[in-house]
Nucleic acid binder design. Structure first.
Length: 770
DNA sequence: TAACACTTGTTTTTT
DNA sequence: ACAAGTGTTA
């Protein structure tokens, strides 16, 4: 341990060793925050505190997994595993499951994700016969979510004049009714949405002092990472748990608070000390990550914000290159410039592709970079977009699981009662639903005793319903014996999903089939790894409770891959790269048009930009485009105000930084011709493709391999003419490669299996011949 | 009831 | 441009 402490600087060490009271660690970007947290936990363990007395809360699953493995390196796997470490949502869902009865739930409650919530809200809006133009599910859900994050119950909501005024002003005065119904429906379905996990934890602690006492005693030391991103509900949970002993350490950086849209309240960190007057504050100000230039540029940027904790982040690394600011003529050219620069840097120095990251404000920007990179044969990996578990076919299967585990789950019921199609349509479901509402029971209950609830359907429909009922009942019975994987297999087979998926030979169908397969493997892996860790034979309910809190951020992490990383700035938080490109620095994009009107919003955008720049270790390049194709139109753009927020001493700008005056939108047709005629030179000149070619390149761009690239699951280097060996289909020649949304697919003539289309994301094969 | 064409909103970020 | 939701037709 001594040696361990020696590797820390003075402040870090002091922060690690201070364990007797509340502490606030203000951790500037790149200042070794995670290091302090992990060492601190190791230190606590070393002092003799048992691991299960330590509660460590993180913001993402990924962060907690990483920290866990780093702690395991320090103190051994065995002890690390017994820590209570995870996201707020996962830790408290675990606690809620074991205390479920206290708050009137069953421990197998379902967790709704955002789209589940939106669906339910849509349904309620319909039932209330409200205008769905005004009451858009996502908007209403946002409002409800905000209320929940502030621990405002439906009753409080309905009694709060200020909120009601606000709703009336936005011409949606009946949100309070929707909220109440929504909450009742969730409860009736033994379900919680994400926010409920925090709300009910608070209620649990508030109404059950004995339970609170138990966890207070258990969690002798509490650590919270990314404290600047906590919302009121989270803050209060921590406060309640820490109130007795005050042994709580929160770590964060107010300058990196970027989640207020989700209810994060920067005041939590700004006012931590007033909650605990005896708080010790540690400021980690030395940045070990970036060059001086990057740190200085970032500092000059963040200085423009008003609300913040004073700190002086500095770097003792080399001075480094200035931040290059490049203006592109169009979004298309922006992609080319970045791809070219990556290629050039690869030649001149020798960085691995994994050292590069392209960071953007919105996911929609990724595509243009994908295309540019693909043209240059640069391998890349995209994070974000729709997650595996959001795909329809996956959600459908999961819904089977949900209904098996929790028969009150109305949403799941609706989803699968006619999937695969078994002739039970909207009318029938409507009948079941109104009968269920009339009698105050679940849909499943009505289905199980149709006569008792006066369900009137014709005999044909009745037969179909019985069929579905028996099918599900069998699953429910089997669930007692079989483990998650065995049952999942059974469900896929017997429900007819397997048949439907594998019979469908369209490319979409094949991809669906592969997704189903992928899900089964995931479940298998889940059961296997848990088995290895010595846990019981896992049931479907265990898988479900884990999977509902999983996001695409967590699925495939092979970060040291030889691939350029493309992601939003939000998902880049906490990461670092040698060479970072921050792209799309234009007004109304970054800062987003949504945020620019309010001071707070604008400052948050600025912090977001700060986060982006400080991801870079060696070089940072910023680009913007004078025109951009968005929502089916090409628009002229003005350069972002953030560019002039930075001290130019740390920048190297091509052209001038004062934005041009052209801000009027330009019609697409006009712009297309411009595109063809104009050749912009930034060292790299190019001839814009004709409209036709451009469209083609989207659909049918062929990918060539660079031989040094290791063949991964995604088979980045696959190109036409190669011979591959496929797991199921054997040998075949690649005849073409196409893009299909975010998926690439290859057309292959197999020697024995004939012509097939493979989704490269999932296909398992080797390249045998060039 | 299912398949299909049509209309509409969407694009800020995610546990 | 695109996906998702809605309404219309077979």
């Amino acid at each position: 341990m001594e040696k361990l402490l020696d590797s820390l600087n003075d402040v870090q060490r002091a922060a690690v060793q201070f364990c007797d009271g509340p502490s606030l660690v203000i951790a500037g970007a790149g200042s070794g925050k995670t290091r302090v947290l992990t060492y601190k936990i190791a230190y606590l363990l070393e002092q003799g505190l048992p691991p299960y007395y330590i509660l460590a809360l993180t913001f993402t699953n990924k962060a907690s997994r990483e920290m866990k493995s780093r702690i395991a390196e320090l103190v051994g796997e065995k002890r690390a595993r017994r820590l209570w470490m995870g996201t707020f949502h996962s830790i408290f869902s675990r606690i809620l499951r074991s205390e479920a009865e206290a708050i009137g739930f069953q421990s197998n409650f379902t967790i709704f994700d955002t789209s589940d919530s939106n669906n339910l809200i849509r349904l309620i809006i319909k039932e209330l016969k409200l205008d769905d133009k005004l009451y858009r599910p996502a908007g209403v859900h946002g409002q409800i979510s905000r209320a929940k994050n502030s621990l405002i119950t439906p009753k409080m909501y309905a009694a709060n004049a200020e909120i009601l005024d606000y709703d009336r002003m936005s011409r949606r005065p009946r949100i309070f009714e929707i909220y109440e119904r929504y909450q009742n429906r969730l409860r009736a379905a033994n379900s919680m949405d994400f926010d409920d996990l925090l709300v009910y934890t608070n209620i649990l602690f508030r109404d059950h002092p004995d339970v609170l006492e138990k966890y207070r005693n258990q969690f002798q030391y509490i650590l919270v990472d990314e404290y600047q991103d906590t919302n009121f509900a989270q803050h209060l949970i921590v406060k309640q748990l820490a109130d007795a002993h005050h042994r709580v350490c929160v770590v964060g950086d107010d300058a990196q608070s970027i989640y207020s849209f989700r209810g994060a309240n920067i005041d939590n960190i700004l006012k931590f000390k007033s909650n605990y007057p005896e708080t010790q504050i540690f400021k980690l100000e030395q940045n070990y990550r970036s060059t001086q230039n990057i740190v200085n540029a970032a500092n000059s940027l963040i200085k423009k914000n008003t609300e913040q904790i004073a700190k002086d982040v500095f770097s003792e690394n080399e001075e480094g290159e200035k931040i290059e600011v490049i203006q592109a003529f169009s979004d298309f050219e922006e992609g080319l410039i970045v791809a070219n620069k990556i290629a050039r840097m690869r030649l001149e120095q020798h960085p691995s592709y994994g050292d590069f990251a392209i960071l953007y404000r919105t996911n929609a920007q990724s595509r243009i970079f994908e295309e540019a990179l693909r043209k240059k044969n640069i391998p890349y990996r995209i994070y974000g977009g729709l997650s595996f578990y959001q795909r329809k076919e996956i959600k459908d299967i999961i819904s089977y699981f949900r209904l098996i585990v929790n028969r009150s789950d109305e949403d799941a019921f609706r989803r699968i009662v006619n999937y695969p199609a078994r002739g039970i349509g909207d009318v029938t479901v409507g009948k079941i639903s109104s009968s269920a509402q009339l009698h105050g029971v679940s849909l499943w209950k009505v289905l199980s005793e149709p006569l008792a609830y006066n369900l009137e359907v014709n005999s044909g429909t009745a037969k179909k319903l019985t069929g579905f009922y028996e099918l599900m009942s069998r699953f429910m019975e089997q669930n007692e014996q079989l483990n998650a994987y065995e049952l999942a297999q059974l469900v896929v087979k017997e429900s007819g999903i397997a048949k439907e998926a594998y019979d469908d030979m369209t490319p979409e169908g094949m991809s669906r089939a592969q997704n189903v397969q992928e899900l089964l493997s995931a479940i298998n892996e889940f059961v296997d790894t848990r088995l290895e860790e010595g846990e019981e034979n896992l049931k479907l309910v265990d898988f479900l409770s884990e999977v509902s809190l999983l996001t695409d951020q967590d699925t495939d992490q092979g970060s040291d891959d030889e691939k350029v990383t493309l992601m939003t700035i939000h998902s880049a938080k906490g990461l670092e790269f040698e060479h970072v490109f921050v792209v799309g620095l234009e007004e109304d994009l970054f800062p987003s048009s949504m945020a620019k009107n309010e001071m707070r919003g604008l400052e948050e955008e600025r912090r977001l930009f700060y986060v982006a720049v400080t991801r870079a270790k060696k070089t940072c390049t910023i680009t913007w485009a004078k025109s951009r194709f968005r929502n089916g139109q090409t628009n002229m753009c003005r350069q972002s105000r953030f560019l002039t927020d930075m001290d130019e001493r740390f920048l190297s700008v091509d052209g001038n930084l004062e934005a041009g005056s052209d801000s009027s939108p330009v019609a697409g047709g006009f712009w297309e011709t411009m595109r063809q005629e104009r050749v912009q030179s930034n060292g790299a000149s190019y001839t814009p493709p004709s409209r036709r070619e451009y469209a083609d390149s989207k659909k049918r761009s062929s990918v060539q391999s660079s031989s040094s690239m290791p063949l991964s699951k995604e088979a980045v280097g696959l190109r036409e003419g190669q011979v591959i060996e496929h797991e199921r289909f054997g040998r075949g020649v690649v005849t073409a490669i196409e893009m299909d949304g975010s998926n690439r697919r290859a057309f292959v003539d197999f020697e024995s299996a004939g012509r097939k289309q493979l989704l490269l994301k999932f296909a398992k094969f080797k390249i045998v011949e060039e």
